[in-house]
C-alpha cells in the first residue's frame, strides 16, 4: 500500500444522510473480477441518467468538483453492503478522504485498507464544512486532525494500528502473516 499522511484539497459536499454502498456503486457493477477502473461507476445512478448522460445538477458533474479529493457527506456514510468496491470506486475516482459525522463500520474498515481516510467530525465542524462547499481543508493522518481554511482544527479518531499502516504503507495482511507462530499455537491449543 502507498504511504498516506497529508491530504490538502478542496471539498466536494454531498449533503445527503445515509449514503449507502448501493449508491456509491450499484450492484450491477460488481461483476468485475478486478478492482481497477471502478471509479467510472462511482455514484452511477446519481451521476448519469438512464441514457448514460451526465446529470448536470449532480455535484460530481459540476466544474468546481474537478480535482477535489475530499468528500464531505451527511451522517452515517457507507451504510449497507460490505462491498469493498465502494472504497475502491471512491479511491479510483480520486477521493482520498470521506468526512462525515458518522461512518458505517464495514465501510470504515474497508476504506482504511485502501488508503481512503474516514474522517468523523462533530456536528459543529460538519456544519461549517457543509456551509462552505469547495473550501480548502488539510487532513493529517499523523496528527489525526482536519484543518479548515481559517486554521480551525478538529481532531478525529483513527484506529492506532490502521494509522500506523497508513503512515508506513504497510499491508495488514503482511502483519497477519508474520503472526503465523501465534496462529499455529492457537490451532494446536484448540486441537488439544
Amino acid at each position: 500500500m502507498e504511504k498516506v499522511n497529508l491530504i490538502t484539497s478542496r471539498t466536494v459536499v454531498l449533503p445527503v444522510e445515509n449514503v449507502d454502498t448501493d449508491q456509491i456503486i450499484p450492484a450491477r457493477f460488481l461483476k468485475a473480477t478486478s478492482k481497477i477502473g471502478l471509479g467510472q461507476h462511482l455514484f452511477a445512478d446519481w451521476r448519469f441518467d438512464a441514457q448514460g448522460k451526465p446529470k448536470a445538477d449532480f455535484i460530481l458533474n459540476r466544474p468546481e468538483a474537478a480535482g477535489a479529493n475530499v468528500l464531505v457527506a451527511g451522517d452515517n456514510f457507507g451504510c449497507g453492503s460490505s462491498r469493498e468496491h465502494a472504497p475502491w470506486a471512491l479511491h479510483d475516482y480520486g477521493f482520498r478522504a470521506v468526512v462525515s459525522t458518522s461512518i458505517a463500520d464495514i465501510f470504515r474498515n474497508n476504506a482504511l485498507k485502501n488508503g481512503l481516510i474516514p474522517v468523523v467530525v462533530d456536528g459543529a465542524v460538519h456544519a461549517r464544512l457543509l456551509a462552505a462547499p469547495g473550501g480548502s481543508v488539510t487532513i493529517s493522518v499523523e496528527d489525526q486532525t482536519l484543518t479548515l481554511a481559517d486554521g480551525t482544527r478538529a481532531s478525529f479518531p483513527i484506529d492506532p494500528f490502521a494509522r500506523f499502516c497508513l503512515l508506513n504503507g504497510l499491508d495488514e495482511l503482511d502483519f497477519l502473516l508474520a503472526q503465523e507462530p501465534a496462529i499455529a499455537a492457537f490451532e494446536k491449543r484448540r486441537a488439544g
Partner: peptide, 21 residues
C-alpha cells in the same frame, strides 16, 4: 460481514484483525 481485503486475510491466515465492538 467483511470486505474483500479481509477475505484475503482469512484465506491466507484463517485470522482477522478486529477491534472489539
Amino acid at each position: 460481514g467483511i470486505g474483500t481485503s479481509e477475505v484475503s486475510h482469512v484465506l491466507a491466515t484463517q485470522s482477522l484483525l478486529q477491534q472489539p465492538p
